[in-house]
Design a protein around this nucleic acid. Structure first.
Length: 931
RNA sequence: GGGGAAGUGUCGGAAUGGGCAGACGAGCGUGACUUAGGAUCACGUGGGGACACCCGUGCGGGUUCGAGUCCCGCCUUCCCCA
């Protein structure tokens, strides 16, 4: 008589035994190959949610699998324990962030243990403890010594009501108001600390050493945003140089104005007195917006002229300087040359503000258009001439709409000259820019022509009197709109001696010429910015810097680390950092001169802590009681030499850019500090998706669609929850929770339990065929599950095991039950199940008389010979449609297959009286007869 | 607007070095057992039908003996960036 499967009776028991036995302690063993499996460390919010399980349970399965494959596996866990929520709890509920965080961690440790993961808890690292963050500070000092940490002015979101800086998530709504008091947020310049990530931009673009998802590689590549071009120096009429970065130096002759970011430092100096009010107002308004809003192409363009002019270095043209919010101080140099004919945003801006738009790059498609307004030409004869010349056009309301291919343009201009009526004109636009008047064609080729043509048109036609530029006049003709602007590369036009330079050489030639003349240089620009790590908060690692009136900025000596967070901080309801008002913390002595000095009160971004946590796990709180020095090691070198780098890293795709760039940056700097001898922190990366609520919405307390793992574990046991999280979705995609779906896994484990442990009936000796069938299934399953483990396709692992269970349930009714093949199948099933559902596997392993522990066993060996089919179903297709299925030996020859197919009754019906044109034979699969 | 991913039964999803579409599970249906446990077991379950047949993997083309899978063009959804 067998007991029922009651997970509550076995799970805790085994968890305690495994822990007592130190089954998952990871100890260096030079005889075994190592495998460092890492899952992204959680933030200690205080409650383990199903997303943590979804991230960690399959990762644990994979780590356990690698262990059974003979690897010495390290699978550690810790907590990313600094951050804003703890500080908010302190303000709102008067709990110290440390107390709040540590009690959350304690609760989550208990929850984690119910998952049955193989975490090595002795390597746990908590980033908010001094033994941890002193090394975070140590890294900061090293980076400072290397010139990779520096201070500069940078804007922060600031609430004027609360008089405090705000984190990004504290700014709410489209109107960007303070989450606490609803006051509109403003930008404020503040001296802040940066890490020079851009110094590694080029190396960060190299992914050749790592196996990461294409998605992440693409996102990082776009994030870094490398572009080649030129830095070009414009000089103002007051002789101030303004450097602009452009990817299109070939369009320089079309630069008809210049735009500075509203916060550009030169704006104040250059603005003329009569423009000052307008500029101030505009700057204030721009400061209130987010960058995303500012860069939106949908948004109506805004900007103001500052009254000054710059000189275009290629043609000496004096061009007006504007400020506009679509130019960002943080991209390039904070100033652009505007080429409205070939940049979409510049085009919209110029059109709105009546600035000249001069085409300087030919259209690569050679297309031109001409609209002959009713009355401006002798329409009938012109139409006839066009037909004679095979020029396509259509007529509507007495007007002609002509579309020209490149080679037709010259002929058309001649026709237009001949047919234009006195006092009228006809335009040609696109691949040719010309106005055909009654006395001949005038090319539209520059700012002077723009003014001249416009004046002449206005003299002839009063209705265009309000137009400020030729392009504005042309924009009124809907028919023209698709040819007025383009941003392709093409032959240069209207560009003095460069006119005629082909598009594929233009950028390079112009850049060389600029360099020769000393007005520009080849330049590479990155969208990637240096990492702003200053946070005006308490609950983070203090930046170990001191400000001395005499010595300036002085780093805290290594031996004095850590700079401890004071425990008796006072948390103000304004959210202001308590460090700024903590006299004991703030006032110190200068490490250099011993005089009075002030400490830096900014703390570090938590991404700094999480950039090196996988090194901290090797030897948590390393040498905590010894003073540090510049040549210290932040982790045990013996552990590092054995375990590093991380072999498999798993976590959410949301960290594709920030965290995963920062941690690569850290490792590259650590290599340059001679701390490690490799370039990349994590060799293989795999991402899991997100589990949504049953309503297909993101889980949230306010929606009431949260699935609590604790309740599921209490009801079904951890093994069922783990199994369902593997089985329910493609791991990389995730999807909505299904409260019925989990029952399928639950029932399956019940069936497995009964299959393995309940006695069957002895049916005597099995036939060789029965034995071979069962062994084939056993080995097929080993092969497939192994492949799926390697590929991180956890859903099919469970599906394959269910399939084997179904086969075995039938086999149990036959004479194969009790045979050696049966015992092999049972043993294999338990072993394959062990990484997925560790508790039930251990219990069944024990009850079937095996020695403790199933988790110390080797992964079952796959025998391809046993897995191979002896008999196959040969598919017979006629003209690609399945017409028969014939049982045949797996190694059937083409001749035999042909014979078998052609003698099949159903096949004969189809080929009778028809000629066989082709016979396709795919060995072991199918034949296709073409008739 | 740019980049990426994905569109397969009622649902989650299988099957891509082209070769039996729908594995495995959920749900539903029928039956058995009889019991309260979220039962269990057996069988069925893409659509249509003149039941030895036809149609079916977002839509429209193409390549091929053969396309869910490859190519071209579109549509929709999601994610990231703007």
């Amino acid at each position: 008589m067998t007991t029922d499967y009651i997970p509550q009776d076995i799970e805790l028991k085994w968890q305690q035994k495994w822990e007592a036995d130190g089954l998952y302690r990871s100890v260096i063993d030079p005889k075994k190959p190592k495998h460092y499996a890492l899952t992204m460390l959680p933030y200690p919010s205080g409650d383990l949610h199903i997303g943590h399980w979804y991230a960690m349970a399959p990762s644990d399965v994979r780590a356990r699998y690698m262990r059974m494959q003979g690897y010495n596996v390290l699978f550690p866990i810790g907590f990313d324990a600094f951050g804003l929520p703890a500080e908010n709890a302190a303000i709102q509920r008067s709990i110290h962030p440390h107390t709040w965080t540590m009690s959350n961690i304690e609760k989550m440790r208990r929850q984690f243990r119910t998952m049955g993961t193989m975490f090595d808890w002795e390597r746990e690292a908590v980033s908010c403890l001094p033994g941890y963050y002193r090394w975070t500070q140590w890294f900061f000092l090293k980076l400072y010594d290397m010139g990779l940490a520096y201070r500069k002015n940078s804007p922060v979101d600031f609430c004027p009501q609360c008089n405090t800086t705000l984190a990004r998530e504290q700014v709410w709504g489209d109107d960007r108001h303070c989450e606490r008091c609803n006051t509109p947020v403003i930008k404020k310049e503040l001296e802040q600390w940066f890490l020079r990530t851009t110094a590694y931009a080029e190396e960060l673009l190299d992914f050749s050493q790592i196996d990461w998802p294409d998605r992440v590689v693409t996102m990082q590549t776009n994030w870094i945003g490398r572009s080649e071009g030129a830095d070009v120096t414009f000089v103002t009429e007051t002789e101030d140089p303004i450097v602009v970065f452009t990817t299109r130096p070939d369009t320089l002759w079309g630069a008809t104005f210049m735009v500075l970011a509203p916060e550009h430092p030169l704006v104040e100096k250059l603005t003329t007195p009569e423009r000052e009010d307008a500029v101030r107002t505009y700057q204030h308004q721009a400061a209130r917006q987010s960058e995303i809003e500012r860069m939106s192409t949908e948004k109506e363009k805004t900007g103001v002229f500052i009254g000054a002019h710059a000189i275009n270095p290629v043609n000496g043209a004096h061009i007006p300087i504007w400020i506009a919010d679509y130019v960002m101080m943080t991209y390039g140099t904070g100033a652009i040359m505007a080429v409205p004919a070939h940049d979409e945003r510049d085009f919209a801006f110029a059109l709105k503000f009546g600035l000249p738009i001069i085409p300087v790059i030919d259209r690569p498609d050679g297309m031109a258009k001409s609209f002959v307004l009713n009355g401006t030409a002798d329409v009938e004869p012109l139409a006839q001439a066009l037909r004679a010349a095979s020029i396509p056009f259509f007529e509507k309301g007495g007007s002609l709409y002509v579309t020209l291919a490149a080679e037709q343009i010259d002929a058309y201009v001649e026709l237009a000259e001949r047919h234009v009526r006195p006092g009228c004109w006809i335009e040609v636009v696109g691949a040719r820019w010309a106005f055909v008047f009654d006395d001949g064609a005038v090319p539209f080729d520059g700012v002077a022509a723009d003014a001249a043509i416009l004046a002449r048109c206005q003299a002839l036609e009063p209705s265009v009197a309000d137009k400020r530029t030729v392009m504005e006049l042309l924009w009124d003709v809907e028919f023209y709109r698709d040819v007025l602007f383009h941003h392709e590369y093409g032959t240069m036009i209207n560009s003095a001696s460069f006119t005629g330079t082909p598009g594929n050489e233009a950028v390079q030639k112009v850049t060389a010429w600029l360099e020769e003349r000393g007005v520009g240089t080849f330049a590479i620009n990155y969208k990637l910015r240096d990492w702003l790590i200053s946070r005006q908060r308490y609950w983070g690692a203090p930046i170990p810097m001191v400000y001395c009136d005499a010595c300036g900025i002085v780093p805290v000596p290594y031996k004095d680390l850590p700079v401890l967070l004071p425990e008796d901080a006072e948390f103000l309801p304004t959210g202001e950092s308590p460090l700024k008002y903590h006299a004991g913390f703030l006032h110190t002595t200068c490490p250099q001169c011993g005089g009075p000095a002030k400490r830096e009160t900014d703390t570090m971004d938590t991404f700094a802590c999480s950039s090196w946590y996988h090194y901290a796990y090797l030897s948590p709180y390393y040498k905590e009681s010894e003073p540090a020095h510049p040549d210290s090691l932040p982790f045990d070198p013996e552990e590092g030499a054995y375990w590093l780098p991380v072999d498999v890293y798993t976590g959410g795709i949301e960290h594709a850019t920030m965290h995963l760039i920062y941690t690569r940056f850290f490792t590259m700097t650590m290599r340059d500090m001679d701390l490690v001898d490799f370039d990349e922190p994590m060799l293989k990366l795999r991402n899991q998706g997100i589990i949504l609520g049953e309503d297909s919405e993101k889980m949230s307390k306010s929606r009431g669609n949260v699935i609590a793992p604790d309740e599921l574990v209490a009801g079904y046991g951890a093994d069922t929850v783990r199994g369902y999280l593997m089985f329910g979705w493609r791991w990389d995609l995730g999807g909505p929770w299904d409260s019925h779906g989990i029952d399928g896994v639950w029932r399956w484990l019940q069936r497995v339990w009964a299959l393995v442990l309940e006695l069957g009936e002895d049916q005597g000796a099995p036939t060789a065929g029965e034995v071979a069938d069962l062994r084939r299934w056993t080995h097929k399953t080993i092969g497939r599950v192994t492949e799926d483990m390697e590929a991180f396709t956890f859903n099919t692992i469970i599906a394959r095991l269910m399939e084997l269970t179904n086969v075995m349930a039938k086999a149990k009714q036959t004479a194969v039950y009790g045979s050696a093949a049966w015992e092999e199948a049972i043993e294999t099933l338990i072993l394959l199940l062990a990484p997925c559902c560790p508790h039930i596997a251990e219990e069944m392993w024990m009850r079937t008389g095996h020695p403790y522990s199933v988790h110390l066993q080797a992964w079952p060996a796959y025998d391809a010979g046993l897995a191979a089919d002896q008999v196959i179903t040969l598919i017979v297709q006629i003209n690609g449609k399945v017409r028969a299925r014939i049982d045949a030996p797996a190694d059937i020859s083409e001749a035999d297959a042909r014979e078998a197919a052609l003698t099949d009754e159903n096949v004969r019906r189809y080929i009778e009286g028809r000629e066989i044109r082709k016979f396709v034979y795919v060995p072991g699969r199918l034949v296709n007869i073409v008739v």
